[in-house]
Design a protein around this nucleic acid. Structure first.
Lengths: 332, 332
DNA sequence: CCCGAGAGTGGAAGCGCTCTCACTCCCCAC
DNA sequence: GTGGGGAGTGAGAGCGCTTCCACTCTCGGG
């Protein structure tokens, strides 16, 4: 592997000039810049990232942390989309993204040590859970960070983007109310995630406003199988429900299956609405009325929030909340 | 951030001894080792990876390269499983895994530059395509590498693990023949992947051996939608097919949908077999007779092949081929 | 009693890079 | 003609670590 020294020698300049020419090129004569470029070419020179990082104290890599089992990560299109967009935005700045999937417990400790160890310049956190306390930890080690989805603890210490889940859930539940449902159940996400609690809160607000019972509530885990099981339980405990607000399309897809197995027609017997609108919603039978989760926009904004911190242009935490958008199909 | 110097001073030893104590501890007295451990504790010392890597010339990170669009990566449980196992095995050696998803073209160039740049100590390649010539490139830069799935070019230069796709496809096709199918079609994977060509070859071998026509062949892309479209075309061009060997369960799932839409009963009108047995196969209607792809074992073996190279214990490329295993369900 | 081996240690070099600082030009204003 | 300033450059320090090498000290064997 050729070093900067050899490049400089071949170009007939000093190491300092070669370095300047390679990084940005300001304060370098056109002649010198050209000579260096040529030397780089002929030697096939690539800067040693360790040496560079040792002095700049930057690594040019960003971690995308997902405190979740990898099975879930890969089964959920939400992550694919998010990773895609984040990578897209950050690679425009030549930042490398490394994916850190850390189940709670030991692995989280490892991950935290990794982040503390100076391997990365910043972090994007997705699918954050209450008990990992990531926001607090990241704030404590002063690592630039941006969350996608409001953290349940330490939210005031970090930047984040969040959809207005309460409003979204309220609006979509209203669709059920307007079409005449009198007993509306819900399948919520995990109670240790803001997308779980907020969407449940929105459902509750709409149902209580309409003076309807809000007893039919089951917590699940944002998976298709979980949604199916939750729906089966709901049908067992509340056989009379005629409306169902499910906190994610993936769970709703499972719920539709359970409803079908139970002989309930959708939307005639039970009207169903989902949440996210990520492709699955169009492909279910019947297609789901749902709330569009602006995944792409959120991911992009989070990446920008992180970049702003990296540039040092801001240090105060910022939050960006996205308004919900209803998508009407035939399930309600 | 505390440095090794401070640790050494606090422990009352030299930097050299502190370094030895922290890495391995051989040739260090118990007293010194303890003093260093304590100093590390109280200071919360973490070695600077850049400084360490600069001198050791190792980064303790491994790249998992996937030359594929990220949509496909995340939709296919194959990748989830593979990443999981690889991460598992490598983290036992405190190696960090970074996921590099590189679509062909520009991004591939970027990725190659990244790999050349000394960011990682080794590479695991999954879902390799012919035209990325990754095996050749990696061999050229002498980066330790292990492929999961035999590369179509440069296979002799790198270590890899591979299922015996030809045998697997042949055996599973024989099931169709034995149950009396007279016109057996196939939906193959991409022709630029060994899993595509090998499984097609196995199908052809079985069909020709039985003296049956082997004209009903359509190439697809290992996705569910692709399988559905391919099956539709197959039914159009060869309405009389009574058996179908599909090169992946995901595609088979799409094919089942197409068959259902066309009013064909499975297995009575058309018997169907898939490939992979990754969970989807049990959940289709009817459940798929398929070939078990030993994903976990292959991933683990590939990780070990890589570790062997990292340890320098071997430099000659090795290959490990896994025998197929039939899984009989009701689709054939 | 001496010598050699081996364990434990510290000094110091050096990994490849960036960046400060001091220097030399050269040009322009006065 | 002089002085000041900006552009371009190179010497050199230093980032935090590992590791070679030389040294000391402690044994045990002859």
């Amino acid at each position: 592997m050729p070093t900067l020294d050899e490049v400089a020698r071949l170009a007939g300049v000093s190491r300092a000039t070669a370095s300047r020419a390679i990084n940005g090129g300001s304060r370098v004569s056109a002649k010198a810049a050209e000579a260096v470029a040529e030397a780089v070419q002929t030697l096939g020179y690539l800067p040693n990232p360790a040496a560079r990082s040792l002095v700049t104290r930057r690594t040019e890599t960003i971690a995308m942390v997902v405190p979740e089992s990898d099975e879930r990560v890969f089964a959920d299109p939400f992550f694919a989309r998010t990773l895609h967009v984040v990578t897209q935005v950050l690679s425009q700045r030549d930042l490398q993204v490394v994916l850190l999937i850390a189940r709670p417990g030991d692995e989280m400790q490892r991950t935290l040590r990794y982040l503390r160890g100076g391997h990365v310049d910043g972090v994007i956190v997705v699918s954050h859970h209450r008990n990992d306390a990531l926001a607090d930890h990241l704030a404590a080690i002063r690592l630039p960070a941006a969350f996608i989805g409001r953290p349940l603890t330490g939210a005031e210490k970090v930047s984040y983007t969040d959809p207005d889940n309460v409003a979204g859930a309220r609006e979509v539940t209203k669709i059920l109310i307007e079409r005449g449902c009198r007993h509306i159940g819900t399948i919520t996400g995990p109670a240790d995630m803001s997308a779980g609690t907020d969407r449940a809160a929105g459902w509750r607000a709409a149902v209580e406003d309409a003076g309807l019972p809000c007893d039919a509530i089951v917590e699940s885990d944002f998976t298709e199988a979980g949604g199916q099981a939750a729906c089966e339980q709901l049908l067992r405990d509340h056989p009379d429900i005629d409306g169902l607000m499910v906190a994610s399309d993936l769970m709703a897809s499972g719920a539709l299956r359970a409803l079908g197995a139970a002989g309930r027609r959708v939307p005639d017997d039970v009207a169903v609405v989902g949440y996210d609108d990520l492709g699955i919603a169009e492909r279910t039978d019947p297609p789901l009325t749902t709330v569009k989760n602006p995944i792409g926009a959120m991911a992009e904004e989070a990446a920008r929030l992180l970049l702003a911190q990296l540039d040092g242009s801001t240090t105060i935490p910022r939050r960006v909340v996205f308004a919900p958008e209803l998508v009407r199909r035939t399930s309600a």
